[in-house]
Structures are given as structure tokens and as C-alpha cells.
Design a protein around this nucleic acid. Structure first.
Length: 602
RNA sequence: GGCUCCAUAGUUCAAGGGAUAGAAUAAAAGUUUCCUAAACUUUAGAUUCAGGUUCGAAUCCUGGUGGAGUCACCA
């Protein structure tokens, strides 16, 4: 029996074949059945390409791991065409795989369009990803940037992994916080508009939110100086009372209030749209809290009948989750109005009605871990079988060296300012390097934006979503090392090579002895499809970022060690040009998954 | 206080229970008659502590220390 795997070109098929061969080998040598074989890429310091962990077999076969490894290695070398050699270190069987496997594998990849991507299946259910979900009383800040980048990127990655994806946001456009901005504008606004001030709408409205807080605090201290306690003062300050009255009027549909609300919200939306555009994110469907905040009340009534919820004496409705290790949670106020939870219950149900969904991902900060745990549990108890398919993409806060960001106190890194700052820095560095002769002013501006935003996005996305980020505006975002511009630079350099490669390099190169750098480059290229699947499964753009970085690192080393266009052997020149081209394609597509553009020159 | 999450080079990040814990940055040294030096190559430097499980632990379990979040008829 001989395992011929020369016709196989994918890593998966290679491993499957090896697994079968190993099992047969064990059967033959030890008369033992092995359940599974553990593979890993051979570490750089050792000779070989694929490593089999022998320790895992000790459960099935008693003996010395080195001896077992050696016997299996001998068996594989003899019976598997592509295993050209092996060595055993401790309990690790390192297999050397023949060049032909790598060239076959590469040629297959070379022919594949959209390498690494899986097309969505026709009848499969979709995934909905919610992200951004801003309040309409203040501009977007650094925390929203992380949220937006994560949500957008996860959506794109899931698409690439073969899912149908809808991107959505819920806009928190109602509530007491909106009324505060509205009230402050009425009081102190002098009919200012975005047009009259030249301010972005969200900035203008945000200013009034801050203004409200300032005036409110003044009133509080006045009341305290008149003998009120702090608690009383906070409740009785006229501004707050008026804001609360305004909210009641809004809910009652008061024409004047609703009209002001519409106007100011529109200002904010226009501002947000501009920021989203700059950031490069988009949505397939918007939900508005003003439309959804009443949803869920029927469901609560229903759940009350079923005994999932219970009513307290004052009329408020609760759920008791103490048996699940959680607390009691309110789902409806005593006055019958909806709380956050009520709305989220309703919105989730609504979404599953609107779309044929398989999974719903909520991109929300980890401060709401508890809320989502409860939400998912409630939906489960209400009997929705899709409740198990809800996923809270929980990410860590973005903190500043000075501490937490607070909009009211103005200690935030504004999203627009930050993007502008990054673009400016990119421009300064570019000008210093001066490689852009022949570029028009507009082209340069586009390039600076590409680089500046690339640096920012990569900086945020390369970190595991779960971890919190400490953001130091002065020194955090670099342009050298493990950064977006580093990867963009490699892309630009490859484009330069391809512009100069005027010969035909489409030919398939089959029998050639591979340079060590070519081998490791091909190995890295092979990993792209499984990286996308992994990133989708784990909802982690960081995996894509890290993969791309490793690929680029590998390519730069290759670029430095061997000539490409200057290569004398014609076949080698073609192969190396092809490899370069493939690497740049992967960079471009991987960065697209992160929402980052790549430049042709830089 | 209860619950949840986190702890890795000076700093910022990696490491599907597997080998000698990888990078980047900062530090020291080197590489441009050749495809873009925003690059490449060297050197030095880390798993919070104490136990346990395992052939094998940064990773799993228990406890301590330190940090964050949450425990609203706010969203």
C-alpha cells in the first residue's frame, strides 16, 4: 500500500492523508487503533514542515515516545510519497515535505480567485451584526471608533467565511439625555444651527449637552447654598425638572417638542454620516429607539401570563433569576413604561421577524456583560429557540492615561479630531520621506488619509477585542513596526515590482527547487483560509491583523534575501513575481476585512 | 461586599494543554553601486505569587495579591 498524495494540494487534504497513513502505521506496527493525530507547524528552529505530536499516542501505545516517533517516521517516509525525510526530537515527529507538494499547493492557490473566501450558500440563514448604536446627544469618540471598527470588521470577516451578513445599528434617539441637549439649546442657543456656526451637527448638539450639565451643576450648588442637601438639589434643580417635563411632552407627541427633536436629530445624523463615511463603515438597516422603545411590552404581558415574570405590589414587573445565579431584574416600570431590557427583548424578536437569521451579534462594551447575560437568559426562558444563537461581542474599554472618557466632562478623544490628527501625522512623515513626486495634491491627500486611518484602525484592531486598550494620544499610534503603515508599505513595494514586471508571469511553474524563504512564504499563504474561518468563529479581527503581519514579515524577509526581477533563472523569476503578486492580493483582501485601504505608492 | 473579566520583556501586543514563551518599540551594533531603508540582519531583556491536575501548564483547577467592570423603575 502506498499513499500517493502528489495530486493533493491543500493543507487540509495533506493532513487528512497523513492522518490516515499514521493510523494505518499504528495498526500495522503496534496493532493499535489511534483516535486522532495532532498536527502543528514545525517550529522554525527545527528541521521539517509538519510536526506530529507523539505524546498524544501514549494513551494508546505504551512505550518510549522517541522510539514510537521514529518507527512512525520510518513508516511514513517509506509509504507516503511526499514525506521526504523526518527527525524526532523528544516527543515530536518532524516531517520534511517534498517541494512538489508546496509547488502544487501554490499553483492551486495561484489559480484561485478570492483565495481564502467562501461564497455564501444559497439557502443558508443570515447573521445580523449590530454595532455603533450611538446616542444622538453627543459626537462619536474613540470608544465608538473601537466599536465601529470591530463591528464592521467582524461583519466583513463573517461574510468572507461564507455567511450572509446584515449590518445594523440601533440609534438611541429618545430619552432624557436628548431632552437635555434640546433644553439647553432652547435656553442658550440663540437659534444657532450647523449652518450658522459652521459646526458639524453632532458637535453643535454635543456642545449643548455639555452646556446643560454646566448650568445644571450651577443650579445644584445654588440650591445647596440655600440649604438643600445634595440629593435634594440634584432632584429639584429647575433644569432637570424641565427636561423631565420635556420628555413627557415628547412622549405625548407635543408638536413643538417633536419638531425641535426632529430638527436637532437631523443635525446629528448628518454629522454622524460624515464620520461614518470617513471611518469607512456602513449599515444595511437602521433601527431607531423612538420606534422600538414600546416594543416588548406585549411580550412582557405574555410572559407574565406564562409565569416567566411576576408582578410586584406597585405594578412593576420582574424576573427572578436567582436560580441561575443572577439577581432579580425589572422588565417593566410600575407606571407601565418600558425599560432598556423591555426594548431589547422587543427589538431582538423584531429582528428575527424581519430577517431569516441564524445568529445575532451585539457589539457592545463589556460594561454591559451583565445586561446581555440577562437578556439572553430571558429570551431563552420565554421559549425562543434562537436565544442560544445570540452573541454579545464584548470588548474592553478604551481608556486614556487620565482615566475614563466622559462626554459630559469633555474628557474624550473626539473621533473626527483623531482621524484628522492621524492623517496630518501621516502627511508629515510622507513629506519627510519625499517619495511622492508626480502625485497631485489631491492624490497626496487621499494617500495621507489611507495611511493615517490605516495606522489608527490597525492599532485598534490588532488587539484582542476582549482586552481593554490604554490609548495615549501622543505616543500610541506608530507608523513603524507592527503597524498598519508597515503592512501598507509592503503592499506598495510589491505594486512597484509588479509595475516593473513587464514580462508574462502567468505560466505555471511545477518542478523547481524551492528556496527556504519561498517555502516559508508558501506555508504562510496556505494559512489564510483557515485564518478567516478562525477569525469568524472567534469574532476576532485581531487574528486577521496578526496573520497579515506575519505574512508581511515573511515576505519582507524573502524580499531582502532573494532577487525577484533580477533573478537569472527564468522560472524562478516568474515564480517569485507570482508569489509577490499573491502576497499583495492577500494583504489587500485581509486589510479590506479590517476596513483598511492599501496604497499603490507611499 | 456578591458576581464577572483581566494580570506575559521598561512599554505596546502574540502564543488552538505541547519543543528553547514569539513580535514590535525603546537600547547596542550592522546592511543602500540591486526590485521603495516606513525595510532587513544581529545582541540583550518577561509568564503577579503559592499550591494542585498532567508525560507536559502562560494556558486548566483552588487560594492570595493587584487592577477594571457590574450589582438603577439610566441607556
Amino acid at each position: 500500500m502506498y499513499f500517493c498524495i502528489s495530486k493533493y494540494f491543500s493543507k487540509q487534504i495533506m493532513q487528512n492523508s497523513l492522518e490516515i497513513a499514521v493510523k494505518k502505521g499504528f495498526q500495522k506496527i503496534y496493532n493499535a487503533a489511534i483516535e486522532s493525530v495532532e498536527f502543528q507547524a514545525t517550529k522554525k528552529d527545527f528541521e521539517g514542515d509538519i510536526t506530529i505530536v507523539v505524546f498524544a499516542f501514549l494513551r494508546f501505545v505504551k512505550g518510549n515516545p522517541v522510539e514510537i516517533g521514529t518507527k512512525i517516521g520510518e513508516y511514513l517516509k517509506e509509504n507516503v510519497e511526499q514525506v521526504s525525510d523526518f527527525n524526532v526530537v523528544k516527543g515530536f515527529l518532524n516531517l520534511v515535505i517534498a517541494d512538489s507538494y508546496f509547488t502544487n499547493s501554490y499553483n492551486n492557490i495561484h489559480k484561485t480567485k478570492n483565495f481564502g473566501f467562501v461564497a455564501p450558500k444559497v439557502n443558508e440563514k443570515a447573521v445580523m451584526v449590530e454595532y455603533s448604536s450611538p446616542n444622538t446627544n453627543k459626537p462619536l469618540h474613540l470608544g465608538h471608533i473601537r466599536n465601529n471598527l470591530l463591528g464592521y470588521s467582524v461583519a466583513e470577516i463573517m461574510k468572507a467565511s461564507g455567511k450572509k451578513v446584515y449590518k445594523t445599528q440601533i440609534i438611541n434617539d429618545r430619552g432624557i439625555h436628548i431632552c437635555k441637549s434640546m433644553l439647553a439649546w432652547q435656553r442658550f442657543g440663540n437659534n444657532e444651527t450647523p449652518e450658522s456656526t459652521g459646526l458639524k451637527g453632532d458637535k453643535l448638539v454635543g456642545n449643548y449637552y455639555v452646556k446643560f450639565d454646566q448650568e445644571y451643576k450651577k443650579q445644584i450648588s445654588q440650591l445647596i447654598s440655600k440649604g438643600k442637601t445634595e440629593e435634594e438639589a440634584k432632584k429639584e434643580a429647575p433644569l432637570l425638572v424641565e427636561a423631565q417635563e420635556m420628555l413627557l411632552k415628547w412622549e405625548a407627541g407635543d408638536e413643538e417638542i417633536v419638531s425641535l427633536w426632529k430638527t436637532m436629530n437631523q443635525w446629528v445624523y448628518t454629522g454622524f454620516d460624515q464620520t461614518y463615511k470617513e471611518l469607512g463603515v456602513d449599515f444595511d438597516k437602521n433601527y431607531y429607539e423612538s420606534n422600538t422603545y414600546l416594543l416588548g411590552k406585549d411580550v412582557v404581558a405574555n410572559g407574565l401570563e406564562k409565569g416567566v415574570f411576576y408582578k410586584k405590589e406597585d405594578g412593576s414587573v420582574w424576573i427572578d433569576l436567582t436560580e441561575d445565579g443572577l439577581d432579580e431584574k425589572i422588565v417593566l416600570r410600575s407606571d407601565g413604561t418600558a425599560v432598556y431590557m423591555t426594548q431589547d427583548i422587543g427589538t431582538a424578536i423584531e429582528r428575527f421577524k424581519d430577517y431569516d437569521l441564524d445568529e445575532l451579534v451585539y457589539t457592545v462594551g463589556n460594561e454591559q456583560d451583565y445586561h446581555f447575560k440577562v437578556l439572553f437568559l430571558i429570551l431563552d426562558k420565554l421559549g425562543y429557540d434562537w436565544a442560544k444563537n445570540l452573541y454579545h461581542l464584548s470588548y474592553g474599554m478604551v481608556d486614556l492615561p487620565s482615566g475614563k472618557m466622559k462626554s459630559r466632562e469633555g474628557t474624550v478623544v473626539d473621533a473626527d479630531d483623531l482621524m484628522e490628527e492621524m492623517t496630518k501625522t501621516a502627511g508629515e512623515i510622507s513629506q519627510e520621506l519625499g517619495k511622492l513626486e508626480g502625485y497631485s495634491a489631491e492624490e497626496k491627500e487621499v494617500l495621507y488619509k489611507t495611511i493615517g486611518l490605516g495606522a489608527l484602525k490597525y492599532y485598534i484592531l490588532k488587539v484582542d477585542p476582549k482586552k481593554r486598550i490604554l490609548f495615549n494620544p501622543e505616543e500610541s499610534v506608530d507608523f513603524a513596526g507592527n503597524t498598519g503603515p508597515f503592512i501598507q508599505y509592503t503592499y506598495a513595494r510589491i505594486q512597484s515590482i509588479l509595475r516593473k514586471a513587464t514580462f508574462d508571469y502567468t505560466k505555471e511553474i511545477t518542478s523547481i527547487e524551492l528556496h527556504e524563504k519561498e517555502r516559508s512564504l508558501i506555508k504562510q499563504i496556505q494559512l489564510y483560509p483557515e485564518t478567516i474561518q478562525n477569525a469568524a468563529k472567534n469574532h476576532s479581527p485581531a487574528l486577521i491583523a496578526n496573520y497579515t503581519y506575519d505574512l508581511v514579515k515573511e515576505y519582507n524577509s524573502f524580499y531582502q534575501s532573494v532577487p525577484i526581477l533580477g533573478c537569472e533563472n527564468e522560472d524562478e523569476k516568474i515564480l517569485r513575481t507570482q508569489l509577490s503578486s499573491k502576497v499583495s492580493e492577500i494583504i489587500k483582501s485581509a486589510f479590506k476585512l479590517l476596513g483598511i485601504n492599501v496604497p499603490e505608492r507611499m
